[in-house]
């Protein structure tokens, strides 16, 4: 059962990690890593596998977060219903914009997705009657069937489980006719077309799917932090997400998880430096991409294969 080896290994890490987590601060970092990893696993389907860039994915995270915040806190919806509604709404929005946007190529696609993300960000900032504007708004805790997710520990296990589920789904897709179609779109779009693949349709599908992943995590983040601000959908956050994909390794699901782990931890380590933090962060970004263009995990895997 080779296909479950990676998943089992990750499950083991998630199960054993708490032994090494001394306090809630570390749990918090682990949870953030997990949540980012879920988004990035989805985004990697779009960028790494299908070869389509999105510089606006944080916009979808923001929409999910605010759907949960507004519906559950202002309208008293059950959190799960709010989250599912958010995912559905984001799915519809992504579907509507995807067809015209994904006809674009390369930098034009980058421009359009970037614009989309920024527009969403500005709506969240400006519609303050709903969103609380730049000050953000508080969100009530996630509860289901009378149970409330309150402690870091509880969130840790939930996030871990969702991450494993997300990876399972993503890996299933990659290794299916749909996944091959997506990879063919990346490998040779004309070859895909003449093989009968409606390439636009597949680009739209994976764009919508990755947006829905992002929205789900947005909802989770909103409830976990108990607070949302428009910063979740900022351009910088979109960039962070893409960076996680690239640094971890494009077209590598576990690479995406590694990328999320590194880029979530790094700012925490650097947190006290301010300007120096940006310098270090920028340098690391440039150096990794220049010297490990295929990303960390694929490079490590190739080294190991050569050595062994």
């Amino acid at each position: 059962m080779g296909r479950f080896r990676g998943l089992a290994a990750l499950a083991l890490i998630i199960a054993l990690l708490p032994l090494a987590l001394p306090n809630n601060y570390y749990y918090d970092v682990a949870i953030r890593i997990g949540m980012n990893a879920i988004i990035v696993v989805g985004l990697n389907l779009l960028i790494g596998y299908a070869g389509q860039i999105s510089l606006g994915h944080a916009g979808f995270v923001g929409l999910g977060a605010y759907a949960s915040a507004v519906l559950s806190s202002r309208f008293g919806w059950p959190p799960l219903a709010a989250m599912l509604f958010g995912m559905a709404a984001v799915g519809v929005i992504a579907f509507v914009v995807a067809r015209p946007i994904l006809r674009l190529r390369g930098h034009y696609l980058a421009m359009a997705t970037l614009g989309l993300g920024i527009i969403i960000y500005m709506v969240l900032v400006n519609e303050s009657a709903w969103t609380g504007g730049n000050d953000g708004m508080s969100v009530r805790p996630f509860s289901l069937l009378g149970l409330t997710l309150a402690s870091e520990r509880a969130w840790y296990w939930v996030t871990g489980a969702v991450l494993l589920g997300a990876i399972l789904l993503a890996n299933n897709i990659v290794d299916s006719p749909v996944g091959r179609a997506l990879r063919a779109v990346h490998g040779s779009e004309v070859a895909a077309q003449v093989a009968g693949i409606d390439t636009t349709r597949y680009k739209v599908r994976v764009f919508v799917l990755s947006a829905v992943f992002a929205s789900a995590v947005g909802s989770m983040m909103a409830h976990y932090l108990g607070f949302v601000s428009p910063q979740v959908s900022s351009f910088f956050h979109s960039i962070e997400l893409v960076t996680m994909v690239v640094v971890g390794g494009m077209a590598s699901t576990y690479g995406a998880v590694l990328g999320a782990a590194i880029l979530t931890t790094l700012p925490q380590l650097l947190a006290t430096f301010e300007g120096y933090e940006m310098i270090t962060f920028g340098l690391i970004l440039m150096l990794t991409v220049i010297f490990l263009p295929r990303g960390l995990l694929p490079t490590i895997a190739a080294r190991l294969r050569k050595a062994g």
């Binding site: 860039i53 930098h107 980058a110 960076t243 962060f281 920028g282 970004l285 440039m286 991409v289």
Partner: peptide
């Protein structure tokens, strides 16, 4: 390098210069 990588490099440079 491909488009995405180059975008990340220049964004890295941008963050570096801001720092």
């Amino acid at each position: 390098a491909d488009v995405v990588s180059l975008i990340i490099i220049t964004i890295g440079a941008s963050i570096f210069l801001q720092g």
